[in-house]
Design a protein around this nucleic acid. Structure first.
Length: 343
DNA sequence: CTCTAATA
DNA sequence: TATTAGAGG
């Protein structure tokens, strides 16, 4: 979920081509989750291999990564570690929501309501450890770097961008901005047409770029105020937010009163120590310097035996895709001995 | 979502 | 060459 800043911040629609030559730190959970939600058959079931194991996330990860490489974009996938204590309540809530969705899904199936079933199926999606392991395995075979965060993936991705090892962080959530990523790319994993729920209509989803400095200067607030603004709206660590306070009211309060403590005082809400803890999660996130970013040609034998042998991908398609990796500008340049893209 | 084949 | 339907796993 994350903090909802969509109503008050500027975004630039960009073309994927604008990211040519850039390193992008992708929030892996976020991307995998979206593949699981989007890659479905007409009846709403995800793609599965002969053992009934879900493979939608691998299909999305594989083909999307290749497309990025072909555009000259260098992806690095950033995975979550152990969530902060403060997130446990929210994680439990999400599990409950999923369990409920699962029940409603079964109900809808029994009564033959396909549309309903599809919608509940999406809400019931779970990203298992097995799925994460398989994804890491695929990335390793493909020669794509990944980083495991000690804690939140978004925090680590933001840190990598902040240090300048990546040009931007990529996620659907705005939390990266609270973690001070200088740039955030949204809609990187998913672009194209997306069905509007319950309507027979489609909207075009385009990649967009958000520049932290521009957000702060246009809102006329500091980084610390952005974090406090986030807490007012509600974050993963205080998902309930505050009664009747959305993005706009929160912004007004922060600007008028300068900080969270005074903003809360103005509406007669007691300040809790917990808010300081949330602030410090964003200001001093648990991240690591222990990573190495290196893009290598895929180990083709391993990719083929994994995807076609275990996951039932078509051999022809996988081979075709591997060919595209070899031809991608990222490797073409280094193979022909020309100057590397990133010195 | 992305791929491929079919179609204009 | 560009667009679209259906399949992929």
């Amino acid at each position: 979920m994350g903090v909802d800043l969509s109503e008050i911040i500027q975004r630039k629609i960009i073309k994927l081509d604008d990211l040519k030559g850039k390193i992008i730190a992708i929030d892996a959970y976020n991307a995998l989750y979206q593949y699981l939600a989007a890659i479905r058959q007409q009846d709403g079931k995800p793609l599965m291999n002969r053992f009934g194991e879900i493979t939608s996330h691998l299909s999305g990860l594989f083909y999307r990564t290749i497309n990025l490489l072909e555009l000259g974009i260098k992806p690095v996938y950033v995975f979550d570690g152990k969530p902060p204590e403060l997130k446990y309540k929210e994680l439990e809530r999400r599990i409950k929501v999923k369990e409920e969705a699962e029940k409603q899904y079964q109900k809808a199936i029994e009564s033959g309501e396909i549309e309903e079933a599809r919608s509940y199926a999406q809400r019931a999606i779970r990203l298992t450890d097995r799925m994460v392991d398989d994804s890491i395995r695929l990335l390793t075979y493909m020669g794509i770097p990944y980083v495991k965060s000690p804690s939140e993936g978004e925090a680590q991705a933001a840190y990598i961008a902040k240090k300048g090892d990546a040009w931007a962080a990529a996620s659907q959530d705005y939390d990266s901005l609270l973690y001070a990523s200088p740039r955030l790319v949204r809609n990187l994993a998913i672009t194209g047409k997306r069905k509007v729920p319950k309507m027979d209509a489609y909207v075009e989803v385009l990649p967009e770029l958000i520049i932290l400095e521009e957000v702060l200067s246009s809102l006329k607030i500091t980084q610390e105020q952005l974090i406090e603004l986030g807490i007012l709206i509600g974050t993963d660590y205080n998902p309930e937010g505050f009664e009747r306070i959305g993005p706009k009211t929160a912004l007004n309060l922060i600007k008028k009163y300068g900080n969270l403590r005074m903003a809360l005082k103005s509406i007669n809400i007691e300040y809790k120590d917990e808010y300081d803890k949330i602030k410090s999660i964003f200001l001093n996130p648990n991240v690591t310097d222990n990573y190495k970013l290196e893009w290598n040609l895929p180990d083709e034998g391993k990719v083929i035996s994994f995807l076609t042998g275990e996951k039932d991908f078509s051999q022809e398609r996988v081979k075709n895709a591997l060919q595209r990796i070899r031809q991608s500008p990222v490797f073409k340049k280094s193979q022909s001995g020309l100057e590397a893209w990133f010195g």
